[in-house]
Each structure stands twice: as C-alpha cells, then as structure tokens.
Write a protein that binds this DNA or RNA. Sequence first.
DNA 1: ATACGTCGCTACACAAAGTGTAGCGAAGGG
DNA 2: CCCTTCGCTACACTTTGTGTAGCGACGTAT
Lengths: 127, 127
Amino acid sequence: MARQPNHPGRGGRTTAVRGSRTGRPIMVLLDLLGRRWTLRIVWELRDAALTSRALRAACNEASPTIMQTRLTELRDAGFVELTEAGYGLTPQGRDLMQLFMPLHHFAERWDRARRDAGAPDRRKTLA
Amino acid sequence: MARQPNHPGRGGRTTAVRGSRTGRPIMVLLDLLGRRWTLRIVWELRDAALTSRALRAACNEASPTIMQTRLTELRDAGFVELTEAGYGLTPQGRDLMQLFMPLHHFAERWDRARRDAGAPDRRKTLA
DNA sequence: ATACGTCGCTACACAAAGTGTAGCGAAGGG
DNA sequence: CCCTTCGCTACACTTTGTGTAGCGACGTAT
C-alpha cells in the first residue's frame, strides 16, 4: 500500500457547494452527503479501512471516476484519509459515522413498515 | 390548499433502487437519501409542512421537475405526505428526522474544525 | 361569471453529473 | 525482468438534474 500518487500538484479547493449556495454548514454538509455514493462510502468504511479497489467492489463496482471524485471530496472535508492501510475514516469521519449508526436499525424498521404497508398509493385523495 | 391533483392514475412503483442493487434496507435507504435534494427536503420540512412552491423556495429554487420527482419518491418511501397543510413529514419521516437532528450541531463543529485546519492538502505524502 | 392568484404538477431543450472500459505510472514480490 | 496491485486518469456514452414555460384545478374577489 501507500504508493505515491502520480498526480503532481493540484490541491485546489474543488469542493464548492453546488446545491445550497448559502454556505451554512448544515447545508454544505447535507449537500456533500447528498451526492451519489458519499453516504455509501462512509458506510462501507465504518469498521475498517479499504483499498480504493476494495472500496469500489464494496460499492457495487461504481465508476472509478466517481469514486475518486467522492474520495477527494471526503478527504477535503476531513472525513476520510488515505493511510498505509488504505482509505479509512478520520476521527471526524468516525464521529459522523456514529450519527449514522442508528440508521441501520431504522432502515430495518422502515423496511418492515414499508413491506406491510405495501405501496400505499401515494396519490392524494384527501376527500 | 388541497386541490385535487390532475394526474389521473399512476401509483406505479417507480422507486427502484438505482445505486445499490442488493436490496438490503440500509442500502436502499442510503441510496434514497443520497439523491440530490432528498436530505435537504426532509430537512426543510423538519418543523412545518410547506406547499410545494414554498418548499422549492426553501431549496434554492431547485427545478420543479426534480422536486416533484424527489417528493414522489419520499411519498412512496413513506417519509413525506401531502396534506391540507401542504407537504409534511409522516410520523416515520419525523422518526428519520430525529436521527438527523444531531447533524446540525455536528455540522457546526465540523465547520469550525475545517476552518482552522484550512485545506489540509490532502495529497498523500505519507513519507 | 369572469378575471385573478395560487395550488400541484408536467414538458422539453439544455447542462451537468455519473457510468463503463481501458489504461497510465509507481511500487512491491517472485 | 515480469507480473501483480496500488491510486488514479481519459474519454465516449448514458443518466440525472436545470431552467423556463405553462397546464388544469381549484379558491376568491371583482
């Protein structure tokens, strides 16, 4: 692991905010986390560092292009770092992950509710 | 409020999973929440129902096309409903929101850390 | 009743984001 | 030296999101 990367020098702040242009931290965060694969990546790193390729495999073989983009964003955000062991969560990344842990149980409950509610026909009738 | 919608009958399950094809609830959820504007919409509805137009305004005037798409997905998922008062969170949506509340404080802390770390030059040197 | 204003929602041409395949240079191991 | 794996990039293609306009269905007031 830990080969030197070959991109010589960029380090430019690329992570503008896109969706929410207010700059309020919560909006920036919601925007960052609301990009494709971001939540998933953090999730997959929850209890071990992974090599870029292993991570990609864990994420249904998502495009290396987008994986790399997301990883760069997450690194810039300070949630992920590249170490000898591969990509892993920073302490701050682990803090974030803590917040998302309950989501697992929630997802199970949600799925059950969803299943026996069975396509509740969302169309508004209201009458 | 509460005009009858004009789409006569669809109600088809549109919300396939896209990113993660495993079908595991957590993956489905992460995928759903990882679509553009989804987290933001839930966030903006956190303490009051909003009309579609007000919600759109709250979300930086995002495209009505995508707002409608996301709202349909969120309705199908059982997190959002359309009531007399406009779009609001369902009980299940509020449950989800509960999990995201700490994110607010986290975002503030994160922003501070981020600010005085100041673009830590993510490029791997490791040596 | 007819002219507003707003509701939820749709159409459509354009731009941006993500996909998939191939492959790079750099390191390690035989 | 060859072979493998690493992190990462190029590029043509598809999908997703944007921006503007506008629909029909109400309410409300003129």
